[in-house]
Nucleic acid binder design. Structure first.
Lengths: 193, 193
DNA sequence: GTCTATAGTCGGATAGAC
DNA sequence: GTCTATCCGACTATAGAC
């Protein structure tokens, strides 16, 4: 079963950087050190392999988001900020699972868009729920103003992350970190009590 | 010369919605009402056609951004908001030239990434310059606080648009408009004097 | 400029020996 | 499970008649 895991990993990285059409079974096989026909002993088709990767990525993302809240922040502002920072750091490092997530959330492979999006959007929804809860706490604690509704604050926070996601694909580490810093400053001034 | 323009337009829409690999010369020819071999009387290759589309898109984008500032806003806040709104409206309508711009800024076709990005990023830079000038004016006029640096305010504004760009590819019109509204509220509270 | 026909390549997937 | 060999389809691009 070790081979199958390796196929999954190499497939994930290639899909993330080259896209679905750009990744051929031959390229995956080369990386694993097999002939492409041997891949079919583990996966019945390229689509099935892709869906298996997607399933893993979706699960990992929810786990990642939840883990970003298990930090040492004292106030809710700090907790939110540290979670945000964890995202910035991962994106700035061009973590390939994040790249996979961003790429196929926006551009799922033609032919099985719905199967792909179902998995990714479900995990996205869970992640947003986690964010919203944290913001709700901050609002109750009086750290976030009542002038801005919970819904508005939450959407603005997602927007922050989506902006970073977009920039990830075409900026380098230091620029992303600078932008993250600036966006956070304005965001926090916009929601703080 | 009418045929060549039609090829350009149909190519743009197909590239925008199906991507580079997803768009075959046959599909373009079908839309124009030709055999694919006839396309080669106008463009020597698929790549050359793509680059011609990209050149047009890059020029149009700068023009679009500048035109969003020629609005009826009285205060600089209103001017900035109306420009932002114009972006939201175009994105919410899934304008195909905007989709082309977003898609290939993030995922340029493999093999000639640099040629593509050179054109797109140059226009991006011009657009950002235009935004920055407008924000500078607002800061001088006292509409935007001095607590936030010009650089931070400008980056946060780009971030707003980048967030919307990201969401464009997977939300519908009404959701994008709602998110735009929320993001603007928080942004403005974050920068206003 | 547009057509038909075709060359040449590369992709996913299967058959069958080991 | 992995290999070699092969099929089949889709694609870009060219040749040559009209």
């Amino acid at each position: 079963m070790h081979t199958k895991e390796k196929i999954l990993m190499e497939g994930m990285e290639l899909f993330a950087t080259l896209g679905y059409n750009g990744t051929s079974m031959t390229k995956i096989a080369d990386r694993v050190g097999l002939q492409k026909s041997s891949l079919y002993a583990h996966y019945s088709s390229k689509e099935e392999l892709f869906m298996d990767v997607t399933t893993k990525i979706a699960a990992d993302y929810v786990y990642f988001v939840k883990s970003t809240f298990e930090n040492d922040g004292q106030t809710t502002e700090e907790k939110l900020y540290l979670s945000f920072q964890a995202h910035v750091k991962d994106m700035a490092n061009h973590d390939s699972s994040i790249e996979f997530y961003n790429r196929f959330s926006s551009y799922p492979p033609k032919g099985f868009e719905s199967r792909t999006l179902e998995l990714l959007r479900d995990s996205e929804e869970q992640a947003r729920k986690a964010f919203k809860e944290e913001i709700k706490k901050a609002q109750k604690a009086g750290d976030i103003t009542d002038e801005v509704s919970l819904e508005d604050a939450a959407r603005a926070f997602y927007g922050l992350l989506d902006g970073l996601s977009y920039e990830t694909s075409y900026y380098d580490m230091d620029i992303i970190e600078n932008h993250g810093e600036s966006m956070w400053k304005v965001f926090w001034r916009g929601v703080k009590a």
